[in-house]
């Protein structure tokens, strides 16, 4: 699995640290906190997720990837898109 880092170019996924679903939004109040921390959509198919390029440019990126095939569908700097 190779990830197309927007800064470094295509790199092996081994250089990255995985954080998970990028669509989760921290709730304003405490009410939604348990859902935010513990519940996941756990999508089968295209999913946008946060990866950290720890052994490259040390930047958080948002990668869209098909979880059923591992096909890469695009990557952007996390700060430019989904949070």
């Amino acid at each position: 699995m190779r990830i197309d880092c927007p800064y470094c170019g295509e790199r092996d996924a081994q250089e990255f640290v995985y954080r998970g679903d990028a669509s989760l939004m921290r709730p304003e109040s405490e009410d939604g906190m348990a859902d935010y921390v513990y519940l996941r959509d756990n999508l089968a198919g295209p999913m946008t997720e946060h990866w950290y390029h720890a052994q490259g440019c040390r930047t958080w990126i948002a990668v869209t990837r098909d979880t059923t095939t591992h096909a890469m569908l695009g990557a952007i700097f996390a700060r430019d898109g989904v949070r």
Binding site: Y18, T67, H70
Partner: peptide, 12 residues
């Protein structure tokens, strides 16, 4: 270490 339904992994 990443979400997957693919029933196959990677080389690392």
């Amino acid at each position: 270490g990443y979400n997957s339904y693919a029933q196959r992994g990677n080389l690392p």
